[in-house]
């Protein structure tokens, strides 16, 4: 959406508004900000010691699922941190798959053969789709490891291989921190690479970088012009933003989207019912969402 048109804001309003058209996508930050990695581009700065959001318990997830059922939520996403660090993760997956399709965003390190087999069983037992999404940052250790950590490239591939061996076909995500991943040649090269590691029908999603959290230090922060201040969005433009159809549950409450969980003003309440109102797009990450048309969904 690089052709986004600049329209003046409504009189008396500094930033455009994103209304919630319907709560279709509910995110659970099942692992909080706790991760077994500490990637240099992590926009929520997850790490083994970041406790700003704690893990969600099965009981907390079930409470929100009951509310989500009444609201008619269409799909669920689990993220962290690293979801498979959560000691109740398999119970959480099972409970959620009873109610709708689930996608899990993981770094793949904890997907050992027994975990992959359990995931496959849970997937087969549900009439809804279970999708696993594994992140990697390059075609080789040289590009990946400086971002994700020493030795991680091979460990990620092992996780992907374990999923493939269990008959699961994960979506692989790569960020634009990986050089050229956004271009057509970059994509083709990546797909070729994924075939070479055993994914016969590779699925790929390229994500733009959000210049907040650790990423602001790795490359650069937003510049002052990168803002939606003074703009107006049409309903169609607002409809493309994921915050017009999602909310994020963390141990700290309900946030507008999976991106802004470190900003207290993005917390919308304690229950989903509190969080169904519109959101003012004051944050610079909102600029990336608007100009790239990007969504964290698959």
């Amino acid at each position: 959406m690089s052709d986004a048109v600049h329209r003046p804001a409504e009189p008396g309003r500094e930033y455009p508004i994103s209304p919630l058209f319907a709560l279709d996508t509910l995110w659970f930050q099942v692992a909080g900000t706790l991760c077994n990695l500490q990637c240099t581009h992590c926009f929520i700065s997850s790490s083994p010691t970041n406790h700003s959001h704690e893990m969600l318990t099965l009981e907390a997830v079930k409470r929100h699922l009951a509310e989500a059922e009444a609201l008619g939520v269409k799909e669920y996403y689990f993220t962290g941190g690293e979801p498979f660090l959560n000691p109740e993760i398999f119970e959480i997956i099972e409970a959620t798959l009873k109610q709708g399709p689930v996608s899990i965003l993981t770094n793949g390190l904890l997907i050992r053969p027994d975990a992959a087999a359990s995931i496959r069983q849970l997937s087969d037992a549900s009439e809804y789709s279970l999708d696993i999404r594994v992140s990697i940052d390059g075609y080789d250790p040289r590009t990946n490891d400086p971002i994700r950590g020493p030795g991680t490239f091979h460990r990620i591939l092992t996780g992907i291989g374990n999923l493939a061996a269990a008959g699961l076909n994960p979506v692989i995500t790569v960020t634009e921190a990986c050089e050229g991943a956004g271009s057509q040649e970059g994509r083709l090269r990546f797909l070729e690479f994924l075939r070479s590691v055993g994914l016969t029908r590779p699925r790929l999603k390229v994500l733009p970088l959000l210049r907040i959290g650790a990423e602001a230090e790795r490359s650069r922060a937003y510049e002052s012009w990168e803002t939606l201040r003074g703009r107006h969005l049409t309903p169609e433009e607002a409809g493309i933003l994921q915050c017009s159809s999602c909310r994020m549950v963390t141990s700290q409450g309900i946030f507008v989207c999976p991106i802004l969980i470190d900003y207290p003003d993005a917390r919308m309440g304690e229950t989903l019912g509190d969080a169904l109102g519109p959101f003012e797009l004051r944050h610079q990450a909102c600029f990336t969402c608007h100009v790239t048309g990007f969504s964290c969904r698959t």
Binding site: A68, G72, V73, K74, Q99, G100, P101, E127, Y128
Partner: peptide, 23 residues
């Protein structure tokens, strides 16, 4: 009913969402 190009796949259209659409 809400969007001409929304994909309603079997495995992605859960019962609570169907109830909401009908409502």
């Amino acid at each position: 009913p809400r969007k001409v190009n929304e994909f309603l796949w079997r495995s992605m259209t859960p019962d609570p969402f169907i109830r909401k659409l009908l409502r």
